[in-house]
Amino acid sequence: MKARVFVTLKNGVLDPQGKAIGNALHGLGFGAVGEVRQGKVIDLELKESDEAKARASLKDMCEKLLANTVIEKYEIELKA
């Protein structure tokens, strides 16, 4: 099974990199751009065929390492 984990800053946590990207996009003339938030994508291969088990294990990985839950939130996407 393949998984994709999105790690992004929680709402309300200042994202200076997102802000800088936004400013650069404005500089390039993309005037319609509003707030920009950036984050990480982590792709994993899992030796697990049970979706519920995979999800539980990924949640554990996020809590323990992949995300710092003081400042970040995560989303898990599974692909068979």
Binding site: V13, L14, P16, Q17, A20, N68, V70, I71
Partner: peptide
């Protein structure tokens, strides 16, 4: 990161 102290250290505000 080991939760021996609370909070987190983020990217400097001016990058």
């Amino acid at each position: 990161e080991t939760h021996m102290l609370p909070g987190a250290l983020m990217r400097n505000a001016d990058l």
